[in-house]
Design a protein around this nucleic acid. Structure first.
Ligand SMILES: NC(=O)c1ccc[n+]([C@@H]2O[C@H](COP(=O)([O-])OP(=O)(O)OC[C@H]3O[C@@H](n4cnc5c(N)ncnc54)[C@H](O)[C@@H]3O)[C@@H](O)[C@H]2O)c1
Ligand SMILES: NC(=O)c1ccc[n+]([C@@H]2O[C@H](COP(=O)([O-])OP(=O)(O)OC[C@H]3O[C@@H](n4cnc5c(N)ncnc54)[C@H](O)[C@@H]3O)[C@@H](O)[C@H]2O)c1
Lengths: 250, 250
DNA sequence: CCCACTTTGTGCGTACTTTCACAAGGGCGT
DNA sequence: ACGCCCTTGTGAAAGTACGCACAAAGTGGG
């Protein structure tokens, strides 16, 4: 079989002594998915603070910027270890390093995008990609009239070279931006080639074996969720209040 | 104030709703967010079944297609009411109607996209948009060299006409595809103009007042989450198992 | 009309999240 | 050195979400 399951319990356990300088904290293995999904948000907020020259920040302030409850933020960070100083807060630069390390951003990840249509091109041209450890290693498409085109400085390759590219470029994350009908096939090839992380933009549920992570970005679903709440608001209710940013989780 | 919050605490909660004086069975007001987020997935699966001529489907089969546990699916559907027939399953067409109605897709929603750059164009050209009750009412940008261009059959308008457009076209959902630096400003204008649902593609946390829904789509965060798990996999662990599709929730 | 069989709807225990509230830790002024 | 004040880290409570297991409900055959 393959399919199903939402979040996984995350294991925990072993872990030698980290590299951390002095006050290193034992950090337990097993960070909650909900926390993992928020770490990138904290990281972005911290980088903004760092760029503006702020040396330290309290959980209260950082939480405000990140749009979360401060207790939640502290608990999230506590999963990484005790990197704060009571009475003071967290050292911005140090925390950036810790979160980056935890997320695996201290190493580079090669990404291959398949389906260089409207969306694929936008993704390829998206600068924010490389800013954080992600490198677009290849752009692939099945349409021979597109193959060879230069997009964002990269020549589009033919889908048939997927396996070669994955191996040569050591691709670890596959992005699928093809029509839904081709998504499963592309996904299977990625997996067969050894890729175990997939980001899917096609509006369909991919079937994958255990051990493979798939995250989906589905515009249509987002709109439908918004429509649901919008309808509620005008449904006569005075009530409804949804609040701040809701994105993905697990 | 305004700011904060990530996922909303789910309104549901209180909302006794003494409303329905009738029989007890009917759907209580207050569908769990997690359920709302899955309804669109079920809907899509059902439509595929409908197109292939399938008249009824069991929770087991539908769950398989949607990639979820069948008990979860049944519980989700039970929030809408009892639309299944024991021993048979659910009537595809009827269920499509019920879910559509619940999601508010039986009415049309006008959408305005701001920021017609790489991503904005891809969104505008995205056909799947209109397929389900969503109509792109306007495309706006601040760059005068873009204003006037025809994208997906629509002329790009100037951002200064936002308020007029929202009123004239009765826009209820605003899509932000501008650089992060302009996102909050655009968001504020949308809200000021009366829009209470926003879909944000800019990598930043928007500050909004209560009553306004914001959903974000953040490519960078998705990649970072994948990187986290990818790192775990190679961290020596044999273990890690994340599985099937993970998308947004709440 | 009754029985065997299928599938729904849901009670219940478990697990995960969020939030509150506060004791303990640490810096700083005196 | 001492004590005050600020902020962290976290136990515990409350709220949600999941998925199992099964009684109830409906179908079709005999
Ligand atoms: N454009 C958007 O804003 C948007 C939004 C949400 C979802 N999506 C989804 O993203 C996907 C891509 O959207 P798009 O607008 O870029 O579509 P598109 O038609 O512009 O591009 C699809 C590309 O995939 C290529 N392709 C088709 N089959 C392939 C295969 N087997 N192997 C490799 N490449 C193949 C095509 O040649 C084409 O270049 C679709 O599934 C769409 O539903 C798009
Ligand atoms: N392209 C992607 O794949 C991608 C992926 C993830 C996130 N994003 C985010 O989406 C946003 C748009 O990305 P893009 O690649 O399309 O960028 P882009 O630079 O191509 O387009 C941005 C557009 O917004 C317009 N704009 C700027 N300020 C504006 C304002 N105040 N009002 C109205 N319009 C304004 C610009 O004129 C431009 O046309 C960015 O925030 C980016 O980080 C993009």
């Amino acid at each position: 079989m393959s399919a199903q399951l939402q979040n996984a319990p995350t294991i925990a356990a072993q872990e030698h002594t980290p590299v951390t300088p002095r006050t290193s904290q034992p950090r337990e293995r097993g960070i909650p998915e909900a926390t993992v999904a928020r770490l990138p948000v904290y990281l972005r907020a911290l980088q903004a603070l760092h760029e503006s020259g702020t040396p330290t920040v309290s959980s209260e302030d950082l939480a405000e910027i990140a749009g979360v409850n401060s207790a939640k933020l502290r608990k999230d960070l506590s999963h990484l270890g005790s990197y704060g100083t009571r009475g003071v807060g967290y050292e911005v630069e140090y925390l950036i390093y810790q979160i980056s390390r935890e997320l695996g951003l201290t190493q580079d990840w090669s990404v291959a995008i398949v389906g260089i249509g409207n969306l694929g091109r936008a993704l390829a041209n998206y600068g924010g990609f490389g800013t954080r450890g992600f490198r677009i290693a290849a752009l692939l498409d099945a349409d021979v009239s597109i193959v060879g085109d230069k997009v964002a400085g990269l020549a589009v390759g033919h889908i048939d070279t997927l396996e070669d590219v994955v191996e040569k470029e050591n691709v670890s994350i596959g992005v699928i931006a093809t029509p839904a009908s081709a998504a499963q096939g592309v996904c299977d090839r990625f997996i067969e080639a050894g890729v175990t992380s997939v980001l899917n933009f096609a509006p369909m549920v991919l079937n994958v074996p255990p051990g493979v992570d798939v995250r989906k970005v589905d515009l249509s679903i987002e709109l439908q969720i918004l429509a649901f709440h919008e309808q509620r608001k005008s449904d006569g209710h005075v009530e409804s209040g949804r609040i701040g940013q809701t994105g993905n989780a697990r």
